[in-house]
Design a protein around this nucleic acid. Structure first.
Lengths: 121, 121
DNA sequence: CTGCATCCATAACGATACTG
DNA sequence: CAGTATCGTTATGGATGCAG
């Protein structure tokens, strides 16, 4: 039998922390947006569309702080800033994609359950 | 070349929605707490410790609504309510564990990045 | 172009008290 | 035991305006 480290309170706490972070609604979107190429701030802003500039900025700062993206400033005029996934960021993409795939694949099941719950009420 | 559905805005949106849901900090903890056996309300409360009763209740209601857990009432005195993962809930555990494992395995890398960021400031 | 600061609305959360 | 109701606090997200 495995040691099964998932059961420990400590492990659960860490999972909670990380999920709280990536669950901040925009983190995942941004990381996934950067999946195959670096992007400039305004590119991201345009790509994500309904993110406010404030949220994009703070999301990127958090991601940078946690080592998921790099921020490269080119001090031209006008200034240019590129964001790129680090190795850690690319690593994170793996379990993130698994979860993302699951979400896409099972969304209908959740929808069905919610529909049932709603009409039952 | 694949259609690569992950890039679409729609897919990202759904991922965001679902992550926002499971990222609500307690959802994951509760789902993982139920991983191998059904538990009563008070068992969960005791197992999770620093969750407030209100949060546990509303988290469970959300999970039930979305079809991740079942709620079984035994109308004895005192009343007894058991919560159990559905098949959908158990399915969710798979990508969730992947992410959890990643979190545990890479926590130190994130910590290191944060430490670097902090002292750089 | 990039990003910070400010203000504001809302939602999340927690503590407490009370009901079946 | 399980759950609802209420209140107050904090966190989150958006809009706008300003600055390098």
């Amino acid at each position: 039998m495995k040691p099964d480290p998932h059961h420990s309170t400590a492990a659960c706490g860490r999972v909670g922390d990380l999920l709280a972070k990536i669950g901040s609604k925009w983190t995942v979107i941004v990381v996934r947006a950067l999946r195959d190429r670096p992007m400039r701030f305004s590119e991201l802003k345009r790509a994500i569309q309904d993110i406010s500039q404030k949220m994009l900025t703070s999301t990127l700062r958090d991601l940078e702080r946690d080592g998921f993206v790099t921020r490269t400033v080119t001090p031209t005029i006008p200034p240019r800033v590129d964001y790129c996934l680090t190795d850690l960021g690319k690593d994170l993409l793996v379990p993130l994609d698994a979860l993302g795939d699951w979400a896409v694949a099972n969304q209908h099941r959740v929808d069905a359950a919610r529909a049932r719950a709603t009409e039952a009420a």
